[in-house]
Simulated scan of single mutants.
Amino acid sequence: MEIIYARDYEQLSKQAARYVYQFVASRPKVTLGLPTGETPIGFYRELVALHRDNQLQLDGMVTFNLDEYLGLPPQSPQSYHFYMNRHLFEPLGLPLEQTHIPNGLAKDPEAECQRYEEEIRRHGGLDLVILGVGRNGHIGFNEPGTSFDRRTHVVTLAESTRQANARFFPSLEDVPTQAITMGIATILEADEIILLASGSTKAEAVYHLIEGHKVTEQWPVTALKRHDRVTVFLDREAAALLSTAKETRSP
């Protein structure tokens, strides 16, 4: 596991964007797993800026998002379809037929999960997955207690997750209670994984991943210990509980 320390969120976003830009630029075809939430917004902004300065060849780029709320139409401002179009797909100029996001309005959500898994396999699996992490250690929407053997599945969101995401909705009552999420087993099959963590609320989850001794389903992020190609991008607040952070931070 490689750890890259940043002074702050802005530097973290630039570092991660350069990493992913170079990853995509070095391959004629690439399949990415993509996150949503607050942390990736700066990363997407910086990736778009790099593309504008020196354009990537996008015809070989395919994306699969980690998750989507159940019950939200794609045009809802709170849906992850809307989020991705706003923050990455439209600014990047990526054709929507090269993007994949679970259908939150699927009449049969379980069948949609199976379809999504089959589509990932049809594209040869994921070359790189970019993750955020929740304050309770969730990756994607894989909440504490989720089996590491799960593939794309329907999840009931933890109350702490709904409360953390309530700022994006008119009220807590409007936050969906369920979502479709890429499973941990699917994530771990990616060739490479990067994790973005910013802010003090992520510090405990980061500690369990990097210095904790257990791989435990109570902290889903610790599943990444089982992968041999993980790069973690941290700002100072997210790294606050790490014993080695002071010696290895960027100046």
Rank of each mutant, 00 (worst) to 15 (best):
R249M: 15
S76V: 03
R135K: 14
R226L: 15
E110V: 11
I139R: 05
G104N: 04
H87A: 05
E117Y: 08
A223E: 01
E211F: 10
Q78G: 08
G42R: 00
E192H: 14
P144V: 00
T244H: 15
R115V: 04
F82Y: 15
E119F: 07
Q114E: 13
A111E: 13
L196N: 02
L50H: 06
Y21C: 06
K214N: 15
L128Y: 09
R18I: 06
A6G: 09
G140R: 00
L47M: 12
I194A: 01
A111N: 12
P251N: 12
K214Q: 15
R45I: 02
M61K: 12
D108E: 13
S243M: 07
L56S: 05
A164E: 13
E118D: 15
V133R: 00
R121F: 11
T36I: 02
L70K: 10
L105H: 09
L32G: 12
E119P: 00
A111R: 14
K225N: 10
T201Y: 11
L96T: 13
F233K: 03
T181C: 09
P28L: 02
A158S: 15
H208V: 01
Q218C: 10
E2L: 11
E38T: 15
G134V: 01
G60R: 07
H51F: 05
T222K: 04
